[in-house]
Nucleic acid binder design. Structure first.
Length: 497
RNA sequence: GCCGCCAUCGUCUAGCCCGGUCCAGGACGCCAGGUUUUCAUCCUGGAAAUCAGGGGUUCGAAUCCCCUUGGCGGUACCA
């Protein structure tokens, strides 16, 4: 049983990948990597009606952004073009239609499936009747009665049909899930699932079984909302006489109201997190901790992807759904931002700054690498996500305007206030350009302030920032530079006179 | 309705398999104090779970058994 571990992610190009999908993918990916396995991407585009233009590229882009590396199947090349790689292709289901038809035919011949000619109207009627009678709505097996020859004639006459699986009667279907354990369902609760639709496309159930088998997938990772449909797959494997891969149903990520995440209700597209300035490493770290934990004795919660892979174990995957807690993501993201080198932070911040009006309208001397790195040095420990870079410290980029009363520290008089600012001005003026460092500024200002720090530092801070809340005056002065700092001090004094 | 799954602080969770060390531990968040001015960071401390409820079994149960309740999911020619 030393089968090679092969895990696949099989998205449908019907919309943007959301955080719940990503978490399920992540667990599969972690499991594959942990076991030296292969991570494969296959596209399940068997529902022509729901396909969304460009969705496939977006999904693959997000995978790339988050650093989930695809070993085989569908991926993007260096130019962002979709390409397929591997020996088990094609990896796009719409290119494999003949295959599914052939296997469906095999099931019909073996007596495990049959053509069904029922109209939508009849199907609806049956369902309605069952509902009113309190039965579980499912196909009533009407078309099972046709002999192979009768069915053949109907088809020859051009009647539209689908192919349904013939679920055996009075059979207990049992399978083992690596997270949920052993699960049994009576066959009477399993519907005669449509395998091939009237447009000739397979449904998910047939396609997934055929492909997973042919592609030698060893573990099927999917959301736990699929759990109750698992017996259909189990039956299909039995019909074909193929060996079952292992099931790994992963608990779903749920929203604050306890329900499954909804793309419409909850803003949870992975793309959105990228735009909001979350780092991929932070998102991975956070997602890994949703429904999984590194085990006893581990109190730390910040892990690199390599550490997570190394620690990952299905035995520690929770069964209950996990609520997505944005506050915790924020905290994790802040931790990752703090760990960035100044250069990394600078590189990553540029695209976010470029979107801000206060930055775009700033003078060129405020856009130099040197200046921005000073701003970032101050901001690094305050940033929760990259999109708020500069946001709370706009005074670094713009002219400032404020009410003169803001300059007043506690109850000092106008005269004291003017003296305070004059003093700051003198101190700053005496510091030579080449010594314009936070340390020096601190030394000189503290020395001048004596034991009345607030009297000196508060007015100075407001004069430099024009803000109620801001970094310290030393930091402000350091970033702004000597001449700009003095300019702002003159400006403040002018207000008071 | 029917079928399935799940159930420990507000949230993520440890502990449950192998009953006692758990009057339940950690993290986020929250509150308070401190870190030579504000904000943030950081540090320290605190509040926060009758382990969904009820019955058993046992000297002893969050941990084993049964029932109940609640939540979620599925119930398509969608995935």
């Amino acid at each position: 049983m030393n089968k090679k571990i092969r895990v696949r992610f099989a998205p449908s190009p019907t919309g943007f990948i959301h955080i719940g999908n990503l978490r399920t993918v992540l667990f599969g990916y972690l499991f594959a990597k942990k076991n030296n396995g292969t991570f494969i991407v296959r596209i399940e585009d068997t529902d022509q009606n729901r396909e969304v233009e460009g969705a496939l590229e977006k999904v693959l882009e997000m995978l790339q952004w988050i650093n989930i590396v695809t070993d085989e199947g569908v991926m993007l090349d260096s130019n962002g073009k979709v390409l397929e790689k591997g020996e088990f292709g094609p990896y796009i289901q719409s290119k494999r239609l003949d295959l599914y038809k052939r296997y469906a035919q095999e099931l019909v011949e073996k007596g495990h499936a049959y053509p069904c000619f029922c109209s939508e109207e009849r199907l609806n009627e049956v369902r309605e009747r069952q509902k009113t009678e309190g039965e579980a709505p499912k196909y009533d097996g009407y078309c099972r009665k046709f002999s192979a020859q009768e069915a053949q004639e109907k088809i020859a006459n051009g009647e539209k049909y689908v192919i349904r699986m013939k679920v055996p009667e009075e059979k207990t279907i049992t399978f083992t899930d690596l997270v949920y354990g052993e699960i049994s369902i009576e066959s009477e609760n399993v519907d005669d699932q449509v395998l091939i639709k009237s447009d000739g496309f397979p449904t998910y159930f047939l396609a997934v079984v055929v492909d997973d088998h042919l592609m030698e997938i060893s573990h099927i990772f999917r959301g736990d909302d699929w759990l109750s449909s698992a017996p259909k797959l189990v039956l299909l494997y039995e019909f074909f006489g193929w060996e079952m891969p292992a099931f790994v149903h992963v608990p779903n990520v749920i929203s604050g109201n306890g329900k499954k995440l909804s793309k419409r209700r909850d803003s949870v597209s992975v793309e959105q997190f990228k735009q909001d300035g979350y780092l991929p490493e932070a998102l991975i770290n956070f997602l890994a901790l949703l429904g999984w934990n590194p085990g006893k004795g581990e109190t730390q919660e910040i892990f690199s992807i390599a550490e997570i892979i190394q620690k990952f174990d299905l035995a520690h995957v929770h069964k209950a759904g996990a609520v997505f807690d944005l506050k915790k993501l924020d905290w994790i993201n802040a931790q990752y931002i703090k760990k960035l080198s100044l250069d990394e932070l600078y590189q990553k911040s540029l695209e976010f700054l470029a979107q801000k009006d206060f930055y775009r309208n700033a003078s060129d001397d405020k856009k130099t690498e040197e200046y921005l790195k000073k701003v970032l040095t101050i901001e690094q420990e305050r940033l929760v996500n990259l999109s708020e870079v500069g946001e709370y410290n706009r005074f670094f980029f713009t002219d400032i305007e404020y009410d003169k009363e803001m300059l007043r520290w506690k109850k000092i008089t106008d005269q004291e206030l003017i003296e305070s600012l004059e003093k700051s001005k003198t101190v700053l003026d005496e510091i030579p350009q080449e010594n314009w460092e936070i340390k020096t500024l601190e030394e000189k200002l503290f020395a001048a302030a004596g034991d009345k720090k607030g009297d000196l530092l508060w007015p100075l801070r407001v004069a430099l920032s024009g803000a109620q809340k801001s970094p310290s005056p030393m930091e402000l002065a350091w970033v702004l530079g000597k001449s700009e700092s003095l300019k702002r001090l003159y400006f403040a004094l002018a207000k008071l006179k």
